[in-house]
Structure formats: C-alpha cells, structure tokens
C-alpha cells in the first residue's frame, strides 16, 4: 500500500500539480472538470484512467490533443468501467509474472462516466465490474441528463426537470419519473465503498476519494455535477448551485461501507428549502406556474423522506 497524500487544508492541497490540463473543450463553468481535478489530485500515485463516451471524453481527447497527463483510454459509451477493469487485470497478471516495467508503483485505476453512461447504457458493465471485485474506482459525473447529445433525459433525470426527450409543454411538466438510486444499487453489490460526493465540499470529497483508493476492491462514487448548459444557469454560478444541491439535501453526502454501514458525512447548518434549489435553474422554471406548484411541495416531501431514511439507516448501523 502506498502512502496516502497528506491534504490537511486547501493551502496544502493547492501545491498539487494537476494531471488534467486546460484548453480542453468543456463548457466554461463545467463542474466535470472540478470533480476530475479533486479526484486526480487526491493521490500522487500513478493513474490509469478511462472515460466513457460523453462530455468529458469528447472534450478532453479530440485529436491531435489530449488533456490527460496519465494513461487514459476511451472505448465506447457503455464500457469505460470494463476498459479500466481489463487494464487492472493486466496489471495483476504482469505483476504476478514479474513483467511490469516499473514494479514499484501503486497505480490507481479510475473510470469516469456520465449518468447516461452509468445509470443507463453502461449499467450492466459497471455492475459486472463491481461484482467481480476489480480494484477500480468508478466515478459518475452526475449531471442528470445526456448533456453531450443535447439534453435528453436519463434515468438520473429528476421529476419535473425539462429535458429534450421529456420536455415541459402545454400539458406536461417534463420528466415523470424519480431518479434511480444508483448509490444504493451499487452498494448492494457489497463493494467495500460507495459514496455520494459534491465538488463544493472538497474536503469531504477528497477524504472519500482517498478512502476509496485505500480499500481493496471496487469503489463507486456518485458526484453531483451541475451542468450550466442543461440545468440552465450562468456559468459563474456553478458552485452556488452545487451549494444549493448539498444544502437543500437534494444531494445528501454520505457513504456506504461494505454495502451496509451508512454514514452521513455532511449535515448542513442551515438547510435550504428545495424550492430555492429548483428556482435557481431554468430546467425547473415551469414548476413555478400555479398548476405545477404542487410538484415543488412533493419535491420537498421526497427530499425530507430521503433524508429521514438516510438518518434511520445511519442510526440502525445496518
């Protein structure tokens, strides 16, 4: 086991040398990049990375440029997790055979994918990787929409959000289904570590990433990634929206150890009404019409119920 990088505070963290480069093609204000930086900077070990097809992938490896300072692979939309799992299998094989070129390293294997590539098309591949016990980390950049293809709904798109394939209109309030609880599903594979993170709570996030790197076996991370383009807010407000997401408890921050031990890792001092979170984003604008205001009430009730559920799980220690 390699030594864990010491990150006491933000000043110390800022001495990190990024292994993700600028002049990528992500939108101004994109949270994907902030999440990637916090993951990569959580370790000084070597990295083997993948990205599934999606915003991150198409914006960071457009020939003849790469924005990655570590080995990186993209195969397709659904199989980024398995790409890294294959590389990890090769690492184990070559290590056992004594054929690694630099045998003294402790590489970390990380797969990045959007919610479309994780909750939907890549679901089976990720499930397989989690079940098989590869020593990999899968990080979902959860912006609750197929942003790369222009804003279609995914199974992570929340109720009442307007997406191009679930548009709000004269007789519809947009998406009708609640988002999939992916962290629970992944934790149910009895993996050593699953967690929900947000880039605004960097310390919580980096701690979780480091924990994920320290365990032996698959790790699942769901990171909220506010999308300036599809959530429809000003690029400068990315962190403000992220704050609203965590402090309204729409995105509660917690971890599940070994598939059962749930810990809430962030309890906002002042919980913000869900309405404020919704009001800050264009994708929910129509909910503020009189006929849909009941949905805002239902939103709050759902978030409250989920928070109560997480608290019960934490207390029960099961």
């Amino acid at each position: 086991m390699s030594e864990m990088k010491k990150i006491k505070n933000l000043k110390e963290f800022s001495t990190s040398a990024d292994r993700f480069e600028g002049a990528n093609l992500l939108c101004p204000g994109c949270a994907h990049s902030i999440i990637v930086r916090e993951v990569l900077n959580a370790t000084n070990d070597d990295l083997v990375l993948s990205a599934s097809t999606g915003c991150l992938e198409v914006c960071t490896a457009v020939y003849p440029y790469t924005s990655w300072d570590a080995s990186w692979i993209h195969i397709g939309f659904e199989n980024g997790s398995t790409a890294v799992a294959g590389a990890e299998a090769m690492y184990k094989a070559l290590k056992n055979k004594g054929r690694l070129k630099q045998p003294d390293r402790n590489p970390k294997f990380v797969s990045f994918a959007g919610d479309g590539a994780s909750y939907d098309i890549g679901f089976q591949w990720i499930s397989g990787c989690m079940e098989r016990g590869h020593n990999i980390m899968h990080v979902v950049l959860d912006n609750e929409v197929y942003a790369n293809t222009g804003g279609q709904r995914s199974s992570s798109t929340p109720i009442g959000s307007s997406a191009t394939t679930a548009p709000a209109g004269r007789v519809s309030y947009g998406e009708k289904r609640n988002k999939k609880d992916m962290v629970s599903i992944m934790a149910s594979h009895h993996i050593p570590y699953a967690a929900q993170v947000a880039p605004n709570k960097w310390k919580d996030m980096v701690k979780k990433i480091q924990h994920g790197f320290s365990v032996d076996g698959p790790v699942f991370i769901n990171a909220v990634s506010p999308c300036t383009t599809e959530w429809k807010f000003d690029p400068k407000d990315t962190m403000m929206i992220t704050d609203l997401a965590t402090d309204s408890l729409v995105f509660p921050l917690y971890e599940i150890i070994d598939g059962h031990e749930l810990n809430i890792t962030y309890r906002p001092k002042n919980v913000v009404p869900v309405e404020e979170y919704l009001a800050a984003q264009g994708r929910f604008k129509h909910l503020f019409k009189d006929e849909y205001k009941y949905l805002i009430k239902e939103w709050q009730e759902r978030v409250d119920a989920n928070w109560a559920y997480l608290n019960r799980r934490e207390e029960a220690r099961v």
Partner: peptide
C-alpha cells in the same frame, strides 16, 4: 478557493 473551484486549471 479560486484554485480548487477553477474548472480550467
């Protein structure tokens, strides 16, 4: 804060 939250390094 600006360093950690800058999306463009």
């Amino acid at each position: 804060f600006c360093w950690i939250y800058c999306p463009d390094m």
